[in-house]
C-alpha cells in the first residue's frame, strides 16, 4: 500500500502539468508556425539588403534568434537546476533534461549559421571572434551536461549531479565571457561585426525571434511530456516486476 501511495504522489504533480500543457501546446505550436512563416515571408520578399553586407544579412534572421535561444535554453536549465536542488520540485529535473538537447541544437545552429555568415564577411569560415568563441564554449557546456547525465545509471542521481554542474556553469560563464573578451581585444582589435540594425530589418528579426522562441517553448513542453511518459512507463514496469516478485513469494509460502 505504501509503495502505491508514493507512486501516486510521484504522478500527482506531473499529471496536472500534462493536462495543462496538452491544452496549451497546440496554441503555442500554431503561434510559432504563424510567426515563423510571416517572418520568413518578410525576410525573403520584403526586407531590403544591408548597405554594407548586402543580402548576406538574411542569415542574421536565423543566427541571432539561435544565439538568443542558446542563452535562454541555458537559463531554463539553470533555473530548473536551482528548483531541483533547493525546492526538490519533481518537474524541475524533467524540465532541465528536456531543455538540454533543444538548447544544444540551437547553439549548434548559431555556430553553423555564424560560420557561414563569417565566410563572405571575413573571408574564412571560422574567426576567433569573441562572440563566436563564447557560443562555442557554451556548446561545450551543453555537451558536458548531456554527457554527464547519460553516464550515470541512477536517473535521480544523474539529475541532481547534472544540476550541480549546470549551476557551476552559471557561476563560471560570466568569467569565461569576460576572459574571452579580454583575450579577443588582445589578439584582434576589431572585427567589424557591430553594425546597428536598421528599422526595416528590426520587424522581421523581432518576429523571427518571437516565432523561434515559441517553437523552443513548444518543443520544451513536448519534451517534458515525453520524459514524464517515459518515467511513468518505467515506474509501471518496476511495479510490474515487484508484483511479479510478490506473487512468486506468495506462491512459495
Amino acid at each position: 500500500m505504501k509503495s502505491m501511495q508514493t507512486l501516486t504522489q510521484r504522478l500527482a504533480n506531473p499529471t496536472r502539468f500534462m493536462e495543462l500543457s496538452r491544452a496549451i501546446l497546440p496554441w503555442i505550436a500554431a503561434g510559432a508556425a504563424l510567426f515563423i512563416a510571416y517572418a520568413m515571408y518578410l525576410v525573403f520578399f520584403v526586407a531590403p539588403p544591408d548597405y554594407q553586407q548586402g543580402e548576406t544579412v538574411k542569415i542574421m534572421y536565423i543566427h541571432v534568434p539561435s544565439a538568443w535561444l542558446a542563452l535562454m535554453g541555458y537559463s531554463i536549465i539553470a533555473l530548473s537546476s536551482f528548483g531541483l536542488l533547493v525546492f526538490r520540485h519533481p518537474l524541475a529535473d524533467v524540465s532541465a533534461k528536456a531543455a538540454a538537447p533543444i538548447g544544444a541544437a540551437f547553439t549548434l545552429a548559431a555556430l553553423i549559421t555564424g560560420s557561414l555568415w563569417g565566410k563572405p564577411m571575413w573571408g574564412t569560415y571560422w574567426v576567433w571572434d569573441a562572440r563566436l568563441t563564447s557560443v562555442l564554449i557554451l556548446f561545450f557546456l551543453y555537451l558536458g551536461l548531456i554527457a554527464l547525465r547519460s553516464s550515470l545509471e541512477d536517473e535521480a542521481l544523474a539529475g541532481k549531479l547534472t544540476a550541480v554542474l549546470a549551476l557551476v556553469g552559471v557561476a563560471i560563464l560570466p568569467i569565461i565571457k569576460f576572459s574571452v573578451d579580454w583575450w579577443n581585444t588582445l589578439h584582434q582589435p576589431s572585427t567589424g561585426f557591430t553594425s546597428s540594425v536598421d528599422p526595416s530589418m528590426r520587424t522581421p528579426l523581432l518576429l523571427s525571434a518571437i516565432g523561434f522562441t515559441l517553437l523552443f517553448i513548444a518543443l520544451h513542453l513536448k519534451g517534458m511530456q515525453n520524459e514524464i511518459l517515459r518515467r511513468r512507463v518505467k515506474t509501471l514496469r518496476l511495479a510490474e516486476i515487484e508484483r511479479g516478485d510478490r506473487a512468486f513469494s506468495e506462491r512459495v509460502e
Binding site: G54, E55, T56, K58, T113, W117, K119, P120
Partner: peptide
C-alpha cells in the same frame, strides 16, 4: 547577390 550559396546553405 554573390553570396547566395552561403545564405541558402545556412538556411
Amino acid at each position: 547577390g554573390p553570396h547566395a550559396a552561403f545564405i541558402w546553405a545556412s538556411y
